[in-house]
Design a protein around this nucleic acid. Structure first.
Lengths: 223, 223
DNA sequence: GGCATTGACAATGTATGCATTAAAAAATAC
DNA sequence: GTATTTTTTAATGCATACATTGTCAATGCC
């Protein structure tokens, strides 16, 4: 009855495996057998194997000839790389969004995400905050109007999501963060492309610095 | 005896299918049956199917439930998106490469690629020129030192390669192009990050404009 | 005791067969 | 002649079986 029920076992495996990875049930660096995973998903090896190959091409796992499937760990250096890409592409998206001249009514989702973050912060709900933060970034990229950037950012977010699970609670409250978001929002609404880009870039670079410092400090090597 | 012979049929299928697509033997927009492709590759459906799913996650094909595999066409709008990403990420790579302070001996591959382009131009060998151009861009990104950017750019290049096959011979001789390349090279050697970025950005944006104009002019919709 | 060789084991890579199901074709009603 | 339903067809999704091959361990040699 749920609307988005995927019909093929391949897709179920894809979604299921992603959840196992993001939830941490399959810990980073661990190895797993196709047979074992297939049993866990309640289907034969074939669709699971197909899903694993897809996940490999997305960099989440590594299929090693006869040694099982390794859940790829994300190092601090990896996060550095990922944030570099996110900074660059999201800034471009912000610039393009500003240039596109959206009407305020088209920016509702963006504004809502920011409000939701405020709300979550007041209620100390870090999980809700993280969800709203993702919504903001996803919407921003969507407004940028480049579908490849959407896809790439989405993929990078997958990796960030794994790091976030480990760092969310040791991270200082993201207060500054929302001022940045509002500044970006304003720049887009005013059609100020240069400012939108600069603001978002600064925002991302700060986030990067914060996260990297955390990772280094806590020696969180494999996420 | 060849060194890089892939051992699994899955990998052979992956490489083989890519070649069929890039060479244009599988034309953009055309549909194909798994069985047919498997026979063509001389193997069973299983590895071919796995390869197709991987290619789908890379955006080269679209597997449609019971209507065959569609070779995804690349529109002018797609090329606009792709060049936007390439411009952004390669420029960052150039900046980082300059900042890394490479010694001249580490930049040999880059210089060689530029020379090869000169040579190819003199000999009117456009295919060799295109190959050297790819080498230059690949090496530049490698020097940038961000492996995610390498991967992403590589994937985008796949799409460009398809467009190039159609446009290489109707395109004006890329003369200006190599001056740009040399300027980027110089900036990197001198460690001038700002200049490296700016030069490369300008180069890519010009290339984008040229290509888009060509595509629009010749109404090359599906590549 | 250490190292190499051989052999068993087991997980993967691949082929094959079958059930499902969508698309195409045919037949019927209007 | 057109539209609708039924039938047929065939391509895919998946399960299963088998062959291949890397890994691990045990054995024998030095």
């Amino acid at each position: 009855m749920t609307r988005t029920e995927p019909q093929s076992n391949y897709q179920r495996a894809l979604i299921g495996l992603r959840e196992l990875i993001f939830s941490g049930e399959l810990t980073a660096g661990s190895d797993h057998l196709e047979t074992e995973l297939a049993e866990r998903m309640g289907m034969s090896r074939t669709p699971v194997r197909e899903a694993l190959l897809t996940l490999e091409s997305q960099g989440l796992v590594k299929v090693r000839p006869r040694r099982g499937v390794r859940i790829v760990p994300v190092s601090a250096e990896d996060m550095r790389e990922i944030y570099e890409v996110l900074t660059e592409l999201e800034s471009l998206a912000a610039e393009n969004a500003a240039r596109a001249g959206y009407h305020e009514t088209e920016l509702v989702a963006l504004a809502n995400a920011i409000d939701a973050m405020d709300m979550a912060l007041k209620q100390q709900d870090l999980v809700a905050w993280a969800a709203a933060d993702e919504r903001f970034h996803a919407e921003l990229v969507r407004l940028g109007g480049n579908t490849r950037i959407e896809t790439i950012v989405d993929r990078m977010q997958d990796q960030v999501r794994r790091a976030r699970a480990s760092t969310l609670y040791i991270r200082p409250k993201p207060l500054q963060s929302n001022e940045d978001h509002r500044a970006v929002y304003r720049a887009i609404r005013e059609g100020n492309a240069t400012s939108a880009r600069a603001r978002h870039r600064a925002h991302r670079q700060e986030a990067k610095a914060t996260l990297i410092a955390l990772l280094d400090k806590h020696q969180l090597k494999g996420l």
